[in-house]
Design a binder for these strands. Structure first.
Lengths: 101, 101
DNA sequence: AAAATTTGATCCGCAAACATATCTCAGTAG
DNA sequence: CTACTGAGATATGTTTGCGGATCAAATTTT
């Protein structure tokens, strides 16, 4: 695995930013997402490949939403989010698709 | 859990659409994503809460990308994708956040 | 300073995702 | 009818995410 780990790391970084911006502790977010604190920590650090439902719950606890979009549309969406400059950082870099790896 | 199952179902439906649009078999996509066919089938049917890396790989195998976006921006992004009307269907409905459940 | 809070990190036990193999059924082609 | 392909479904065993408890380090608060 290669890009997968990077993706997880970017997700975790995104979550951390959103959490700090919201002024929440790890435990608070973990509780909101319905997961344990050690596990939320793993998500933030990208230590583990969390389940889809876990990521969805964490995202929603932080006011975020996971979306599936065509790779070709990613730049446009990023452009749409950047100016808003809240705390939104698109999740994954669309660096070509390595298919598997 | 409630909405989680729905989200998984929507993801699976999205994948299936993209797969058929690409003219690929389940086995081909599973191979591209680096997972077994029975498991990819579970993903399509929403039977299992796949891992984050699994979803990322499947998405990329289908020319899609997963993104984390502020819930407030979801409608705008959907509007951006709708006109394209290819095979893009935003993944999850942003119906408030149930936090945990 | 000490005390409280937040975070990093680890272990154990359990549940679930995962691979592999196998079987069946629907559809199409021979 | 038989042969082939795509897809649904199940069984077994391995891997791993997960909760809970527990520890220490870093930060903040009094």
């Amino acid at each position: 695995m290669k890009t997968e780990a990077e993706a997880l790391d970017m997700i975790g970084d995104h979550f951390r930013r959103a959490r700090l911006a919201a002024g929440l502790t790890q435990e608070q977010v973990a509780d909101l997402a319905g997961i344990s604190r050690p596990r939320y920590r793993d998500v933030e650090t990208g230590a583990a490949a969390a389940r889809a439902t876990t990521l969805i719950n964490v995202a929603r606890a932080l006011g975020l939403e996971m979306m599936l979009v065509p790779q070709a549309m990613v730049p446009a969406i990023e452009a749409l989010l950047s100016p808003q400059g809240e705390d939104d950082r698109p999740a994954f870099s669309p660096q070509a698709e390595g298919d598997d790896e």
